[in-house]
Each structure stands twice: as C-alpha cells, then as structure tokens.
Amino acid sequence: MKTQNVSSTAPRAPTSDRSDRSGGVKPIIKATGLVKRFGKTAAVDGLSLEMYEGEVFGLLGPNGAGKTTTMRMLITLLAPDAGEIVVGGFRVRDDAERVRNLIGYIPQERAVDRALTGREHMALFADLYHLPKAEGEERSAWALHMVGLTDRADEVVANYSGGMKKRLEIACGLIHRPKILFLDEPTLGLDVESRTVIWRHIRELKAEGMTMVMSTNYLDEADQLCDRLAIIDQGKLAALGTPRQLKESLQGDVLSLTPENGDSSVRERLTIALKGLDDVVHVVHRDGAIELRVTPSKTILTRVLDVVNGQGVRLEAIQYTRPSLEKVFIHYTGHQIKDEWA
C-alpha cells in the first residue's frame, strides 16, 4: 500500500509518496514536527508535511482540525511551539520576509476592506509587494480581469456579494505572481456557480505552474482539485496521498452480486468459487448479496461473471463501487467529516 497511515506517536510523519515522483525532488515546502497549542488544546500536534513544486496540495479535515493554524504557521503569521518550516529554501523562523515575498495568501475569512474599491485594494497590495507603478497597474488589471471583476472594480467592496469578495481576495493574492499560493477554504459558503468559477481559477493557475496549498472540508473539492491530500484530524496527520491512492488504500473497490434466488447454499457455493480468483481480496455476505473487495483491474468483472455463469447462478443485480473520499475519511479518522455529509 502506497498510502501510509501514521500513528500519532511517529516522530516523523511519512514524507510523501516518493514512488511516483522523480527520485530526490526537493520539496518547496517542508514542515517537520509542527506543534501549536492554544492554552490546553493542541491545535496542531506533531504535523510533518512536504509540498512539491507545481502541485495542488490539499489539507482536508473537519472544523477545528487545525488546517488554518497549520497554514498560518506556514505563511509566517504564527510561530510554532515546536517544529521547523522551510519554504522555498528559507527558514520561516529566520527569513520570514523572504518567505512572504514568495507567497500569496487568501484567508478563510473575507479579509477585505469594505470602504475601499476593488481597484484600490489592488493598488494597495501592488505597493505592499513593491511592484513598480506601471507593473502594479498592469497586474491589477490582469488579476481583476481574471476573476471577472473588471466591471465592478471601481465600486466599494461593501456593495460586493460574498462570492465577489472572495474573488477579489484571490485577485489580491495573485498580484505579485506568488510562487506559492495559500488558499484557506477558498469556496467556503459560496454558491455552486461561484465555486465552479474558483475551481476554474485554481486549475488555470495550476496549468501556469503555480504551487498551491489549499485547505478544505469539502470532499468533492479535495477530490477534484488536489494532486495530493493530507487528511488532518485533531491536529494530526491521519493519511497522506493522492486522492486515488487514498481511495485504493481502502482495500480496493467493492463488487456486490445479488443472486436471483437468495438461497444460502447458492451463495456459499459461489463464495468458495470466487475466493479463488486473482484480485479478489475478500468476500462477505451482506443482506442477501455477496460483497467482494477487489483490487481494481480491467478483467475482474468479466472473470467474476465467468465464475457466476460457470456455477449456473443467475444474478438479480450487480453493483460496482469505487470507495469515495468520504469513505476514506471515515476509515482514517473513525468519523465523518461533517454530520450533513452522511
């Protein structure tokens, strides 16, 4: 299994799935043994992560898991109680300002100034990132255009909708062409349309080669956008890998067969025959159906059906399911990400 499940006592979390990366690539962000306590609660509790250039790295976890706290440490805004962070070759503790030059940050809360217009925001951040005037104006126009706010750029932000504010924040975070963009819950509370727009921006930026670290508690978002995911629960790393690896780590896909007459002797006979097949991990009976855990393979379905036909059994229903990220989440954390996500 490529995905590693890390116990909290491990002094060092697994680095990453090196297997599918060209060997020895240096991470652009490397965090080791991060700890942050607020009073008695450990918001982040021994977290080690590596992110690579050009990837979209997701921090997935329920409310209070420690995603924002982790991110704030990575972007120099919060000093960890323990641990070491290197971003773009600079140690965050010693070289915060150099790190800040490399990164863009789009916070979770709508941190915009209601009294300023969109364009005034862009001018402010252009200056804070020390762009020359002409370049600042050019980048401002580009970023406003990218997020579709050109028409409303001279209106005060108080008139903007929630989605427009979030898009303005993205524009502000992009003005200086950051090497690494941090997005904290970029689509939290947005409607479907705005979410789609923001997903599109993220994909476009990825295509341009930008490294992104995003947090989310939406499973579909993590699944669709992230190259690699860290599942975080109670400040600890619960699992790490590509969405696909994480899903496959759940002992494969599920193939469920319901024989036409629910006679238990038929099921027993079929079970024995199926157990002998390659790629079948294990077989259980559930509600009159036979459930096979299978390693994904092209031929598994035809081979299973051959066995079923060979036994002369007629089937009432066949169902093939890939485990969802939701199942992955439950598997690694022992609970659902949100009650509503049932």
Binding site: I75, T76, E97, P107, L128, E169, C172
Partner: peptide, 13 residues
C-alpha cells in the same frame, strides 16, 4: 478583528 490586519501582515512589509 476582521482579519484584514493578518492579510496585510502576510505581505513582505
């Protein structure tokens, strides 16, 4: 309070 300060502080200023 509204997080704008943190937004500013993330800039290399």
């Amino acid at each position: 309070e509204n997080g704008f300060l943190e937004r500013l502080m993330a800039a290399p200023i």
